[in-house]
Design a protein around this nucleic acid. Structure first.
Lengths: 385, 385
DNA sequence: TTGGCTTTGTTCGACCTTCGGCGGAAGTTG
DNA sequence: CAACTTCCGCCGAAGGTCGAACAAAGCCAA
């Protein structure tokens, strides 16, 4: 059933979202009596979920006691697993990063090795901030491939050999583990950090490959098989000669991904192997690289123009490695989207670079974990236990 | 706030969805005590929303009294306004059609004339079934253009001159009026009638133009400006010469819509002005028409392949005038989608013709109205009044 | 300084809802 | 026809919510 109206969980949601910072706010927002709110808040304080700070500004009467999430006795982790790296961020319940780390790590080494590494890093980070393992409430993990979200099992991931159908959450025992596609968690993080008021958002990651995270009605849209947002293999016109690793040709990723741009630069006699090399060349002012990035932007824009007509988002965020040269990428994207999409859909559309940085995925994964823990159902369970 | 758990509204939702037909069912599903359920049901019966039928099958003890929606003292209407027609269906609260009618009507005559016509038809249909106007609880209207759903105002509709920003609900006074895009209501009707268990569905209407209704998480996705699903102006490759009324070229609608096919048949010396003529030619066995329809299916399939990767639906339903020759259209669509989309997304994807007939839009609009009336919030308001 | 004024927070009794046991109703089964 | 099962209404008990009253805490003006 739906969570109870005005339950402890709903009260906590309002506090954590910043919608309410005092008991009076809560009474006003929920419509419950002040006495009832006090009872709820007392329960939340007793469980260590909420704390009072010294009183706030008076508005002519007794100053209200400010409420906020109690950030001490909890910890959450966000894990970003890439093809060749592993980032872990330890966060408190309000989303602040307590500690983080980054290592080179080949995901191809398989789940046992990789997850053991993650587990060890979790322990080290917890040690750094002096919190016992027991306060780790939930872990979010972003992986570079499709996942069946409900079970946390990768679903035929092309670049994660050995991971297919591996039950990732079971590795960590009894702590709650949420596993999702890396682009999804980046979209979630970007939405919650930079565009919390936006209902419909697309996050486009342009790196070696190209993917898209979809936020609809403020929630991640994962689709029927959890493969939604896989826009890297959408066909673009006029590039039938470009073969893709998926077996088709003219895939967006095969003509506009970081790897594709690097390959074309190599053909022009420039040393470039990866998206990072492309970024370096652009930043060095190489006009060929600049031209190709802009051209890639146009191709991505062509695909996005279709998706804008179809999905009608309010915001499109461009992230990923190549967004470090976003001026050029965005110019191409904007140019094409605004020409090819319908005016009604583009009129209030903004296309912006990502505001979260290199660890967008780790932060987003952490937010996934925190939101799971703070969901009204879960909180009610904790409070009524 | 969210509707109360176990409220009268939630109880009624379970009854109307067919999830529960007896008080015992309700107690089991909601977790409430039998006595509480009885109280809820009594309130619903007293308000004329639910009725008891004679007892059902015994399972060894006293047979339960069956519950169902009380269909007498209510009426709902679904209105399908097209460019040149008007269909009205009068329905009872469980979605059965009580009476319907169809007229030729040019939407270009403007809102006052058209809505007056609709109003008159409503009265006539109510008269036919002998129900007073007062029992008309809600009206759903599907219109051929984008609508701001919250206010029921068309938003720069290209083929509805005089309707821009016209507040349609206000015309009908105090009865609740819901206005939405015609493709959206068709998608809703198809989902509720044929695929109620499906979470993510696309309904593609192929008529004079081409549009798409989106059901995500069982609910209509309308997008930020209510223009979501406008896939008729997505670019298809290799048709740069085909100009579109939107000002761009190579739009899907301009190469695969009924009007476009008719035009190309005309160029081949065949008499065809509209999608209906195309259908007639195909049904007469004309190979040129057949070839063009199949080719249109391939082009539509190209766009749908992109959308399958992006949205990952479980079902795609093909409707609209041209779906009357769906064998040929579907062949082209399936061929392209299964070739161009990712296996993970297509593995459990089914692409089927619409099961609702010519009045899909009117039925869908009626369902929109009924669901509005039966929403837990609204029912709680009625019961507690 | 002091006494109102305003807003916040707590206490407590009244009220309402829900629960669950009990018994009657209405069937089935042996 | 008696025992059993299931359904349903009644009613007292338990628990939750509300709002009034009161205490707390600061502002403000005389």
């Amino acid at each position: 059933m739906t969570p109870q109206q005005g339950s402890a969980g709903e009260v906590l949601t309002l506090i954590s979202a910043g919608s309410a910072t005092t008991r009076s706010d809560l009474a006003r927002l929920t419509g419950l009596a002040r006495s009832t709110i006090s009872q709820r808040v007392d329960a939340l304080i007793e469980r260590g979920l909420v704390e009072e700070t010294e009183s706030g500004e008076s508005t002519g009467g007794r100053p209200p006691r400010q409420l906020r999430l109690h950030t001490e006795d909890h910890a959450f982790a966000g894990v970003d697993l890439g093809a060749t790296h592993c980032r872990v961020a330890l966060m408190d319940i309000s989303g602040n990063v307590l500690a983080e780390c980054e290592d080179s790590l080949l995901i191809g080494e398989g789940p046992e090795k990789v997850l053991a590494h993650v587990d060890q890093r979790l322990d080290r980070l917890l040690g750094e901030v002096g919190r016992p393992r027991a306060v780790l409430r939930a872990v979010g993990i972003g992986v570079p491939g499709p996942v069946e979200f409900a079970t946390g099992r990768p679903n035929n991931p092309p670049i994660m050999p050995g991971w297919n159908d591996y039950p990732i959450p079971e590795f960590f025992g009894d702590v709650a583990v949420l596993v999702d596609n890396d682009v999804n968690v980046m979209a979630l993080g970007e939405h919650r950090n930079a565009f919390p008021e936006t209902s419909h958002l697309l996050f486009v990651k342009v790196g070696t490959g190209i993917g898209c995270g979809i936020v609809a009605e403020g929630k991640l849209h994962r689709g029927a098989q959890g493969s939604a947002g896989d826009i890297g293999h959408i066909r673009v016109s006029g590039h039938e000669d470009a073969g893709c690793r998926c077996g088709n040709s003219a895939c967006l990723e095969a003509v506009a991904g970081g790897a594709a741009i690097a390959r074309r630069l190599t053909e022009l006699g420039l040393a470039a192997e990866s998206g990072a090399d492309v970024v370096a060349l652009v930043q060095a002012g190489n006009t060929q690289a600049l031209r190709l990035v802009r051209e890639a932007g146009r191709l991505i824009g062509e695909v996005l123009a279709s998706l804008v007509n179809f999905f009608n988002p309010e915001v499109i965020v461009i992230g990923g490695a190549l967004s470090r040269v976003h001026e050029h990428l965005l110019a191409g994207i904007r140019e094409t989207v605004y020409r090819r999409s319908l005016p009604l859909a583009t009129h209030h559309l903004s296309i912006t670079p990502s505001r979260t940085g290199i660890n967008a995925a780790a932060l987003g994964a952490g937010i996934l974990a925190i939101e799971h823990y703070l969901s009204p159902d879960n909180i009610n369970r904790i409070v009524n236990a």
